[in-house]
Simulated assay, not measured.
Amino acid sequence: MFHPLRVSEVERLTDDAVAVTFAVPPELRETFRHLPGQHIALRRTSGGEEIRRTYSICTPAGADPVLRVGIRLVDGGEFSTYALKELAVGDLVEVMEPAGRFVLTPRAGRFAAIVGGSGITPVLSIAATLLAREPDARFCLVRSDRTVASTMFLEEVADLKDRYPDRFQLVSVVSREEQQAGLPSGRLDRARLSGLLPALLPVADVDGWFLCGPLGLVVGAERALRGLGVPRARIHQEIFHVDDAAAGATPAASSAAVRAPAHSTLTATLDGRSGTWPVQDGDSLLETVLRSRADAPYACKGGVCGTCRAFLVSGEVRMDRNFALEPEETEAGYVLACQSHPATAEVELDFDR
């Protein structure tokens, strides 16, 4: 469900990024209480077209939530262009309740993150919440940015380093300029991470790895960790950008060749109410639901954010892309409705599970 929230602050972070803070009224504090690492979807209408985009919350989780997101300009991005050039204090924006499973419940242990660019956003919330709540926790952040000037949340990360010097470790790498100190410039690919990570921390002792950023970085980091013997269950991922070439090279786990039925119907349960509708030729299951239920959850429609996650109660589907669900989620029966097409004459989804 979306709620109109007023913008209380717009802070310029870099030449192409801003942090936007929303005022949460007392009656909605419980609604917008988030877990560290979760995101919100923002909605606006432009030229008669509805635009939705998902942005991670960067502030620590707490009883009195501060709803702040980082937005980086994307070439041709309608919402990011609006946010950087037009959005102002006092404006109203429709905001969906926090969602997402790229989260860490604070507990004792050693944790680490590998992030690229705006991938710092959810990890900043995760690290800040963990270190504040759990004195027996340690966190290592390995971040990659194009240049120092393009680095988001420099002050916030530096504050964590100053506040927790014995428990927060920071390693910064830039890919497009030389630094006078620190690591040599260049991309953090699989080969480089395979050599770097064991020199930074005891890889086998890390209780959870959080990878966030562009697809290439996340895939390279996962492969490096798996090559170093890290169990898959300790690796958590969130993709922030997928280009078309990469998307074509990374099909969904359930996209094996299956023949679509000539006619099919979808039964879906959402907010306790069920309905059954015919699936039009070529439509995704999300598009089928949206024709009758405008409140169906979605944001990116690209298989990246996971907002449209639903449980497959019965039938079979073909999922075109999946950059949001963990393997254990797909094994448990969850699919992305925006990427799913019927592979049997009848399909049933449950958005409430």
Rank of each mutant, 00 (worst) to 15 (best):
E27A: 09
A17P: 01
P36N: 11
V7S: 10
S46R: 15
F22R: 02
H34N: 04
P36S: 10
V10M: 07
T21M: 10
L13G: 00
A23V: 07
A17R: 01
V10A: 05
G48W: 15
V7P: 03
R6H: 03
I40Y: 01
V24L: 04
P25Y: 07
S8M: 11
A23S: 09
V7M: 12
A23R: 07
L5I: 03
H34A: 08
L42Q: 12
H39T: 08
G48M: 14
P25F: 12
V10I: 12
V24A: 02
T14W: 02
V18I: 06
A19N: 02
A19W: 02
S8T: 09
E50C: 13
F32H: 01
T21H: 06
E11W: 12
R12A: 04
R6T: 07
R12L: 07
E30G: 10
E49Q: 15
E9K: 09
D16S: 11
R12E: 02
G48Y: 14
A23N: 03
V10C: 06
V7C: 11
E9L: 13
D16V: 06
V20G: 05
R6C: 07
T31N: 05
P36A: 13
A41P: 04
P26H: 11
P25L: 13
V7Q: 07
R6V: 09
P4Q: 05
V20R: 01
A41K: 02
G48H: 14
L35A: 07
A17G: 02
L42K: 10
G47I: 15
L28N: 04
A41E: 11
Q38Y: 05
I40R: 00
R33C: 13
A17T: 02
T45W: 12
P25M: 12
L42V: 15
T14Y: 03
T21D: 06
P25R: 05
A19V: 07
V24C: 04
H34K: 05
V10K: 01
A17C: 08
E9D: 10
P25V: 05
L28Q: 04
L42C: 13
L28V: 04
E9H: 09
P36F: 12
L28E: 08
D15Y: 02
R33W: 10
D16R: 04
R6K: 10
G47E: 14
A17E: 02
T31L: 06
H34D: 06
V18K: 00
R44M: 15
V10S: 03
V10Y: 02
G37F: 10
D16H: 07
P4G: 06
G47Q: 14
E30Y: 12
V18S: 00
I40N: 01
V24N: 00
E11S: 08
R12N: 01
T21R: 11
P4V: 08
V24F: 03
